[in-house]
């Protein structure tokens, strides 16, 4: 029987996963039961449970427990993983939507006008390499609200790839297509929406995809700083609780959500793609 490429790849992935989990499971030294210890060992405190990296079986148990009731809310320090992720996604999407609302029109302007490009380029070049978290103290002082500051940090980190890609895509629209619009007497607004936007869409969506990836990376760090709610806060809180099982579980959840966000933009990217 000949397996297709995808089938073979799936089998290999599964094998790697199983081997990895098994190595992890068996490389964790088992805790000795207190009854097997010598008196000296018991006096030295070795009978107490030692903190250690948990084996995957415990992580699965935790995941099952958390995912079976993701939206429970038992006070500020004990909320379900669904609620925490919900807060993070809400912050990411708010900051991201604000950034898109500014970056895409501004990118259009920069892409269509060489003067605007040259005038704004120095500012972009200085502001772009700033680590988004460096804005946090200033944001906290000016905005005076930790929630809004986190959103601002997402805004500032996701604006640059969208701005630059939009400008690049718009500036690179083939002159022939613009000439088609001109010979059909389309006004500037109709040209922008019916010719330039679809022509530049693949580049713009690539920028949006990069931005959402960065935003998801940054939200974890931002929430560790501002605290209160969100998946970043959850990771840090579980670290403070020395609950490594929960830490590992939430790390996995961060990866899964990031993958879903990226896949959503992948779908969008395929929808706007065209072959010349």
């Amino acid at each position: 029987m000949v397996l297709s490429l995808n089938q073979r790849a799936a089998i290999l992935s599964l094998a790697l996963l199983v081997v990895g989990l098994l190595v992890w499971e068996f490389s964790i030294p088992a805790q000795k039961a207190a009854t097997e210890l010598t008196e000296y060992e018991r006096l030295m405190g070795l009978g107490q449970e030692r903190a250690g990296v948990p084996p995957p079986s415990q992580v699965f148990e935790k995941a099952w427990e958390q995912l079976s009731k993701p939206f429970y809310d038992a006070g500020p320090n004990d909320k379900g993983i669904g609620i925490q992720i919900g807060y993070s996604i809400y912050r990411v999407l708010t900051g991201y939507a604000l950034a898109a609302a500014i970056a895409i029109p501004l990118g259009f302007l920069i892409g269509m006008s060489p003067v605007a490009y040259k005038a704004l380029n120095p500012f972009i070049q200085v502001l772009r390499p700033i680590s988004p978290l460096a804005w946090m103290p200033l944001a906290l002082f000016v905005i005076q609200d930790s929630e809004a500051s986190a959103i601002f940090v997402i805004f500032i980190c996701s604006i640059w790839p969208m701005l630059l890609n939009t400008a690049f895509g718009v500036a690179g629209v083939r002159a022939d297509w613009v000439n088609v619009a001109r010979t059909h007497e389309l006004g500037s607004l109709r040209t922008a929406f019916t010719v330039i936007l679809p022509a530049a869409a693949p580049t713009i969506v690539t920028g949006m995809r990069i931005s959402i990836g960065i935003a998801w990376l940054v939200i974890v760090a931002a929430e560790m700083l501002v605290g209160g709610t969100g998946i970043g806060y959850y990771v840090w809180n579980e670290w403070n609780n020395l609950d490594l099982t929960s830490v590992i579980f939430s790390i996995l959840m961060i990866g899964v959500v990031g993958m879903i966000l990226d896949a959503a933009f992948g779908v969008l990217q395929r929808a706007v793609a065209y072959v010349e």
Binding site: W177, N179, T183, E185, A199, Y274
Partner: peptide, 15 residues
């Protein structure tokens, strides 16, 4: 629109 153009490279909108 009174002067229609057919370009050498067709200039169709590919999307």
């Amino acid at each position: 629109l009174d002067r229609g153009v057919v370009f050498q490279n067709y200039s169709l909108l590919p999307w």
